[in-house]
Design a protein around this nucleic acid. Structure first.
Lengths: 197, 197
DNA sequence: TGTGTTTTTGACCGATCAGTTCCTAATACT
DNA sequence: AGTATTAGGAACTGATCGGTCAAAAACACA
C-alpha cells in the first residue's frame, strides 16, 4: 500500500561504488553520486540513510562484486596448481591498467589508506576483508607445489606476505608506474615466494 | 625596508606537513592548516601561493625529513650487512605503531594512493620519490650477503619488490592491523627475500 | 621623523558541502 | 473511489570550502 521504488537499488549502488572507488570518500560529493546513480537527493537519503551509510553499502558491494571473484579464483580447483591461481590474481592488477589504463586501484586498499585510520568501524571492515584475502592466498598456497609440505603457521605467514605484496602492487599502480614495470615486479614477487615454475 | 616575517617558514611548513600527513589533501582544511601553523590566512597564501602549493612544499619537506633519513639508513656503511639495514628500515614501520600508535603511514604512500591518480604533477613526484626508495633498497642489497653475486637487473627487480612490500606494510598498518601482526609479516618478507641470517 | 615596502590580519567572497523539509506523485489495500 | 503509505523532487538550511582584499602594522632607510 505504498508507492514502489522507481530505481533499481542494486544498480544505483553499483554506480555509487564506482564513484567512491574513483574519487574516494571525501572526494565524492553527494552531487557526483546523485548524477551517477541517476536518482534524486531525497531518494538517496531515504534509501541509504546518509553518505556514510551509502559508502558502507558500496564497500559491501565491492566485496561481493570484486573481492569475492578474486577469492574464487584463488580457490579454483580447476587450476590445480595454486601458484598459477596466485599468478592469475596478481595479473588482474596489471591487466586493468593495460586494458583501460584503470588506475583506481583496489577500493578496499584505497579505503584502508584514507578512511580506516579515522573510523574504527571502517577499520574493522577493512581488516575483515583483508583477512579474507589472506585466507584466499592461504588456500592457493596449500595447492602450490612444494608448499604443501609446510606447516600451517608458515603458510599463514606466507599468505599474509602475499597480501602485503598485493596491496603494494596496488599502490604502485596508483603512483603511476608503467604497466611493464608492474608486470616485472609481479614476476619478482612470484619468484621470491617460490611460486614460479 | 620592509616588515619582516614573523613566523618561521620552515617551522610552519613542518606543521602543515603533519596536518596533510594525518588528514590527507582533501581532509585537511585551510582552517586546520592555519591553526596548526599558527599563522593568518593571508600569510599562508602570500608565502605558499595556494593549497596545492603548500601541499607540494609539505611533500618536499617530507622527503627531506623522512625519506632522506630512510635512504641514509639503507646506505649506512656502518652497518656492514645490507640485510640488517633493510630489516632496520622495515622495523621503523612497526616501531611508530608500537611507540605512539601512529597509523598515519607513509605520507608519500598516502599521497600516491589518493592524489597521484588525479594529478600528473603529483604522480611524477611520487614516482620519483619511490624511485629513490628503490635505489636505497638496491644499495642495501648490494651489501647483503650472497646477493652481492647477483646481476644488476636481478638486484633492481628485488629492490622494486622490497619497495612494494614496504608500501604494502604501510597499508597494513593503516588498515588497523595489530603491531605484532605487522612485525610477523616483516619477518616473513625478510625470509622470502633471503634476508635473514 | 617621515616614507616606502612588505607582512599581517580579519572581514568578506561565491561556491559547494552534507543534510532536511515539504509538497506532489504513485501505488496498494479497503 | 477513498485512503494510507511511501517515493520523488526541488527548494532550502547552516556550515564550511578555498581564496581575495584592503587596511593596519612593523620594519629599513633617508
Amino acid at each position: 500500500m505504498a508507492r514502489p521504488r522507481e530505481f533499481d537499488e542494486a544498480d544505483a549502488l553499483g554506480k555509487a561504488m564506482q564513484v567512491f572507488w574513483s574519487k574516494g570518500y571525501e572526494g565524492a560529493g553527494i552531487s557526483d553520486l546523485l548524477e551517477a546513480m541517476k536518482i534524486a537527493r531525497g531518494s538517496l537519503y531515504k534509501a541509504f540513510g546518509d553518505k556514510k551509510g551509502l559508502f558502507l553499502a558500496a564497500l559491501k558491494q565491492y566485496e561481493a562484486s570484486c573481492i569475492e571473484p578474486g577469492l574464487q579464483l584463488l580457490n579454483d580447483k580447476n587450476i590445480p596448481n595454486g601458484a598459477h591461481r596466485i599468478q592469475a590474481l596478481l595479473e588482474t592488477v596489471v591487466a586493468v591498467v593495460e586494458d583501460d589504463n584503470d588506475r583506481r586501484g583496489c577500493f578496499l586498499c584505497n579505503t584502508a589508506v584514507d578512511q580506516a585510520p579515522h573510523d574504527p568501524e571502517i577499520s574493522k571492515i577493512c581488516q575483515d576483508m583483508m583477512g579474507k584475502m589472506v585466507q584466499g592466498f592461504y588456500c592457493a598456497l596449500k595447492d602450490a607445489g612444494e608448499h604443501k609440505d609446510l606447516d600451517e603457521e608458515t603458510l599463514q605467514k606466507k599468505a599474509m606476505g602475499l597480501n602485503i605484496a598485493y596491496n603494494g602492487l596496488r599502490v604502485m599502480v596508483k603512483a603511476g608506474y608503467a604497466s611493464e614495470d608492474v608486470r616485472k615486479t609481479i614476476n619478482t614477487i612470484l619468484a621470491e615466494f617460490d611460486l614460479l615454475a
